[in-house]
Design a protein around this nucleic acid. Structure first.
Lengths: 130, 130
DNA sequence: CTTGACCTTCCAGTAACTGGAAGCCTTATG
DNA sequence: CATAAGGCTTCCAGTTACTGGAAGGTCAAG
């Protein structure tokens, strides 16, 4: 099938699918007229990548997961290692955002938000001695 | 003062400070030899940006906040609006990451992580019909 | 006079696409 | 048969916010 149909079936934009070919993530065949040709297997791979990206895995993680997906002799430990690593990155990011949120919420809550210039948010950003 | 000293006082890498000049965020003077010259006011602005970036504001937000910082007739409502918007972006991101975390944690917890190929993580990524 | 620490500019790379231009292929319609 | 529409191609540029590195100018000390 052509790229348009592969896009429909995988849920990925055609642009993204072309990009995935460019970085050798999912490489389709070509028909005589130069059009990309996606086999059902190719579409499965695209769907796989789409789901993995949806879970926040990096494209390089996707590459690794895809090769494990295709490897009948994989060790599930290898998959778990990638996922666990990603999980702790997510946890770290959540913790970071929560800290930011706390600080910012505090500042926002103390800002009158009227037409006068005084503002604790600006004061905080300006630093202690201003 | 030269860029090295401004870097020390602001906590920003010199590279970043040059970048901020390039995008007209904090533009220093120049001395005869072509070196950038940072006044104490410039350094204050750099510190301001450094703090704002630390709170996760985008560089464009920093630009807006900086001009409010310098505007004695600002309305605190304008500052609050930017901060509130940023706050809800943070909240949205946290919610998104928590959802990812939940899904991924579930999968990881059900993966044996041994030398056998069976893996619920891969199964999930592969989709329902595989 | 040379060494070393600073400073300069410019170019390229990062992550993962996304938009747009110019142009070929295929099919349907007048 | 001409053409118009829709899908396909490649290539280039832009996004965010820097970061690394190369080649080379400047300045103070020994």
């Amino acid at each position: 099938m052509n790229i348009g149909e592969a896009a429909k079936q995988s849920g990925l934009p055609a642009k993204t699918i072309r990009y995935y070919e460019e970085i050798s993530l999912v490489v389709p065949g070509r028909s005589d007229n130069g059009y990309r040709t996606y086999s059902p297997t190719d579409v499965h791979k695209l769907q796989f990548v789409q789901r993995a990206r949806g879970l926040g895995f990096s494209v390089e993680d996707c590459r690794a997961l895809l090769s494990l997906y295709e490897d009948d002799h994989r060790a599930s430990a290898d998959v778990k290692a990638i996922a666990t690593e990603h999980l702790s990155e997510i946890e770290a990011k959540i913790a970071e955002l929560k800290a930011l949120h706390k600080t910012l919420k505090h500042l926002v809550d103390h800002c009158h938000g009227d037409d006068r210039p005084h503002c604790p948010i600006i004061d905080d950003l300006a630093g202690p001695d201003h």
